[in-house]
Design a protein around this nucleic acid. Structure first.
Lengths: 125, 125
DNA sequence: CGGGATCCACGTCGATACTG
DNA sequence: CAGTATCGACGTGGATCCCG
């Protein structure tokens, strides 16, 4: 896991691994969508998320949520009651702080992604 | 590529795709390390980077740099001169702005990654 | 020195079908 | 409603060898 731990003299390389670990989490295809929707509501059921996130299969949504719960970013709250049982998901405080920290990158992406895609054009495709 | 473009009524979902595109770039294993090292110097040669980034094969470093150049985040400057030819890489302005925007997430990762890993423990590894 | 070509292992993602 | 099981497609990453 440790990418660079030597030659740490004057320059940063403060902890690329931590960043990598977080990137590994949020770069899973449906994580950004889940974050986006959960940050816009106090809590959403599995079905709510499934309907809102277009394109994700149930399996992928389940796996995504399970991983986020495992990492303590999302809280799972099953409603043990009448037959149509529902499971609600919400961001934990940790999850919200991550979404907040992601905001800067999010804004950058919104305003610069077109520049990147434009730079890619010259190479066909 | 477009994950969520429908059902954009009142809630955000401002542009998850842009974020995903950027995440797809920076979540490539050696990108964070390359960014880190290039942001700590005006320019570094291929060999410099290869020596600094421990664990990366030449192939992966090449591919990583090629992609970053393609996306306009890194500039490639070959030194056409004496036999031991060298190729220098440096961040473009676009690349630097991305690294800057990544700083918030980087800081978050440094201070919270241990919490996440602690949360993961209970499930045996 | 700075790469590219090839082959292979592995993980992610998707479609489908099935269960409590 | 809320998932799990299985399979297959694809992409990333790594090792090795070769080239200018």
């Amino acid at each position: 896991m440790f990418v660079a731990e030597r030659h740490v003299r004057s320059r940063p390389v403060r902890d690329v691994c931590a960043l990598q670990a977080v990137l590994a989490i949020i770069s899973n295809k449906w994580v950004p969508a889940v974050f986006e929707h959960l940050s816009g509501a106090t809590e959403l059921s599995y079905g709510d998320l499934y309907r809102r996130i277009n394109g994700a299969s149930r399996k992928m949504l389940s796996a995504t949520l399970r991983n986020l719960v495992r990492d303590g970013l999302v809280q799972r709250s099953p409603r043990t009651g009448p037959p149509p049982q529902r499971v609600y998901y919400r961001l934990t405080n940790l999850g919200r702080s991550l979404v907040d920290s992601l905001d800067g990158l999010h804004a950058w992406a919104d305003s610069h992604v077109h520049v990147i895609e434009a730079a890619r054009q010259p190479r066909a495709d």
